[in-house]
Simulated assay, not measured.
Amino acid sequence: MATETWTPAPLPDLAGRTAVVTGASSGLGAFTARELARAGARVVLAVRDPAKGKTVAGAIAGDTEVRALDLGDLASVRAFADTWSGTLDILVNNAGIMAVPQGRTADGFELHIGTNHLGHFALTTLLLPHISDRIVTVSSGLARIGRIDLDDLNWEHRRYKPMRAYGQSKLANLLFTLELQRRLTEAGSPVRALSAHPGVAATPLDRHVGGLQAVFTRIGYRFIGQKQPEFGALPTLYAATQDLPGDSYVGPGGRSGERPRVEKRTARDSDTAVARRLWDLSEEMTGARYPR
């Protein structure tokens, strides 16, 4: 399913609606926040560095608020959720890290799985009683190289490989969406869980990529992918505002990524058994549980 050339210009009127965008202090998140605000939404920029977030918010024409959120620290995630009041229409789980050196979050999780998946898992489940419309989780085309090792999610027993760790976390994003939508449907909830990926977009996310991977990334920017964060954010904006069924996975279409389209899932990111086991493990690791 593909669209004609699409830009955020025809976003529906979002007046009276509230959106949270994680990682909105740069790149895709900043553009996503700007466009949602331009369409009339009240946008909360959930960022690790509030000073940077305020700089971005100051350049946005619209109703914005900056709140501190460190997805690598469950205490910060809980504090953000505990202080939320009122309805949250759209949650955009955008923040992420890529190919960083091996390290641990404040809670002892491997940095990629802890930040990209577990932080957003906890945030979403804690905020879910407030969410009225949809959750959009930003994955990556590199989810295709990911493997979920449920016995070693934190890379304690394997040789650490930054891109593989990133791929695992991005595959986890897709399996999280799959299982979340199953639970929402089972509960008869109108809330939808969707995912998106930007394709190849030149953002600060790849600053830790080195070696041959860096060479291939630069080639991708030049020949096979979009270069601008604006194009990379289109699938997220499409997933956040268009009438799509739950568990839709939106990616870029066209040479420059200007035509968002719903993509086919792979067998790996459609594995319902692994998705359920990952969910159970994520609950155990974070202490954040699906509302019952």
Rank of each mutant, 00 (worst) to 15 (best):
K170E: 09
Q213A: 12
D107K: 14
T272S: 15
G108C: 12
A33P: 06
T115R: 13
E186N: 13
D271Q: 11
G16Q: 05
L91P: 08
L45Q: 13
L150I: 10
S140W: 00
I148A: 09
R104S: 02
E258Y: 00
A233N: 15
L14M: 03
G23E: 01
R265W: 04
R48I: 01
T137I: 07
L14A: 06
L127N: 00
E110W: 12
T5C: 07
G108S: 11
L153H: 01
A2D: 14
N93C: 14
D107S: 06
L174T: 03
V43G: 05
R289C: 12
A61S: 10
E258C: 05
E110C: 13
R259I: 03
Y249T: 03
E263F: 08
S85P: 00
R183H: 13
V138D: 09
A106W: 14
E4H: 06
V56I: 14
G146R: 08
V191Q: 02
D280I: 06
L118C: 06
T137V: 11
L11A: 00
R104T: 03
L36R: 00
V138R: 06
R78V: 15
S282Y: 05
Y238I: 04
E65P: 07
I148Q: 08
G103Q: 11
T18Y: 03
G167T: 04
V43W: 04
S132V: 10
G254H: 01
G103F: 06
A51T: 07
E110T: 10
I60M: 13
P162W: 04
T217P: 02
Q213C: 03
E186K: 15
P12K: 15
L184K: 07
A81R: 14
G29A: 05
R78W: 12
A273R: 09
R48G: 03
